[in-house]
Design a protein around this nucleic acid. Sequence first.
RNA 1: CGGGGCGUAGCGCAGCCUGGUAGCGCACUCGGUUCGGGACCGAGGAGUCGGAGGUUCAAAUCCUCUCGCCCCGACCA
Length: 583
Amino acid sequence: MVAARPIMRATRALIPTLKEAPADAVNASHALLLRGGYVRRVGAGIYEYLPLGLRVLRRVERVVREEMDRSGALEVLLPALLPADYFKETGRWDVYGDVLFRLRDRKGSDYHLGPTHEEIITDLVRREIRSYRDLPKNLYQVQVKFRDEPRPRGGLLRCREFLMKDAYSFDRDEAGAQASYDTMRAAYRRIFDRLGLTYRIVAADSGTIGGSTSAEFQVLADSGEDAIVACSACEYAANVEAATVQPSAPVATDAPAPTLAKVHTPGHGAIADVATFLGVAASQMLKSLVYSAKDGPSAGQTVLAVVRGDHEVNEVKLARAVGASEVFLATDAEVERATGSKVGFAGPVGFGGTVFVDPEAAAVASGVTGANEADHHLTGVVHGRDYTGTLVDLRLAAAGDPCPTCGAKLASYRGIEGGHIFILGTHYSAKMGARFLDDDGQEKPLVMGCYGIGVSRLVAAAIEQNHDADGILWPMAIAPYHVHVVSIGADAAVTTATETLVAELEARGIDVLWDDREERPGVKFKDADLIGIPLRVTLGAKALASGNVEVKPRTERDPKKAELVPLAGAADAIAARVRASLG
RNA sequence: CGGGGCGUAGCGCAGCCUGGUAGCGCACUCGGUUCGGGACCGAGGAGUCGGAGGUUCAAAUCCUCUCGCCCCGACCA
């Protein structure tokens, strides 16, 4: 329990609630943070935290700090304003592109605002750590970060200036790095548990940084940007981009081999369209998409990806198969050049370039696909007989697919990435010459890991996950106050009783917001629901006449179900409830 | 960066098509009546109509340029 600050009276606070949400607030969290008087927008992806918003932010920070400290990590504070030298050293000055906020000082030297701090921390460590005796080390900071996002959105969910906790671990070897990673993973579990969030730890695509081991902490919310699949039976969960798919066993068929035939399908290019027109199931179609590779062996050429008509192509997997860092759907002109036909009629039969085929597409016994000829499709297409191609898992995992670990069905969720942990290896330390002397007398590069938590994003994520039509439902651990005391009417007895109760709560370490405004009860209740403090304690002449106060959790929708608690022991009872929900 | 949309009082909007010098609701101030789920009556205060230029006797309104913001997509903690 954190020491309580003096109780806050609504009449002295700055909690400018709004009846109507600003028109540009689309997400629940965005609208409610604005309406509840938590934040105000200053520019695209730039926000002010008003007193209530700052309190929530600090609560999240506090949990994060406590668990980081407990895990043995050491807090530092690195600059947000950085000389360009470090990013130039690793090449990110060029690679990072427009996302980097760049500036010049009066002498004309290049600077930028830190979007992340691998280089800076690596520089610190290479200067200060010489020996294996100094290892392992895990340094973290809670710092404002800047990214000139192409499209800030969702209020606090994707900002250009945001608060992040980032930690970097330094070890002698891979085994040590793995141990540091495991420690962080455990710390993150405690953090997300304590924050009261429902989340999944998912396997992630490690992206271009080339991390070997990585996991995302996804806060489940329907409005989440990330699609994830999780097993209904075992622990398996993955970002759809990273999810592997177990090909289902091919169905044995006694049907005779079909004959290849060309059919006229004027104007029918889209899968659903062709399927309806020809009267076949989408699962019998061979969806054929033309891609171009950004780099790698196929750079500049187009390749064909074939998946079953009812499946989607996973571009991350395709890029890996192609050997490129990224693939792009070909432009119409490229498609026409590659297929010799207009868009909508591509197919693997007779395709002039490299073909990648998902096993489940290959398993289609009698496929229907584009004929690489305008307004024509082929039916009775058989893999191996009519076309070939590299067999490789290409499809995007979807709900209902078998779990790659245990075979049970996968369910799909939307998630907000609240944390990301991964092992970096020697990527940065090698480039920047961050070495130490090992006990065998050899100089070796440090093995690094990095671990991020989007602190300000979690504030929004918590709301996305915990709100109703009336407002926010804060988990106790991050609520701006534990208890919202609402006094009804100007009755002297009510005021006296409230003052006493509020003082007693404060003495018990409970953070209290007291709505002492001269407002009608309805206004106060509406604001209380909006603000979302987990426990509401109402003092009114009626209940007080029988010596009671009313206690109602924010989660209880029916005001009649408020619990009557004798005023005499109210402070203890309420404090006990707060402590219980803090775990 | 591609597509779409919006900038008029603190917030939500109307007015623009068909130019005549700005209005509604909420919020705010004052008075009164109310008082357990966003009260009512009356009286007020508050707007460079995003900015610049142009057309015109006259521009929120028409034209050009520009800045900002939002949504979808691409991209990402």
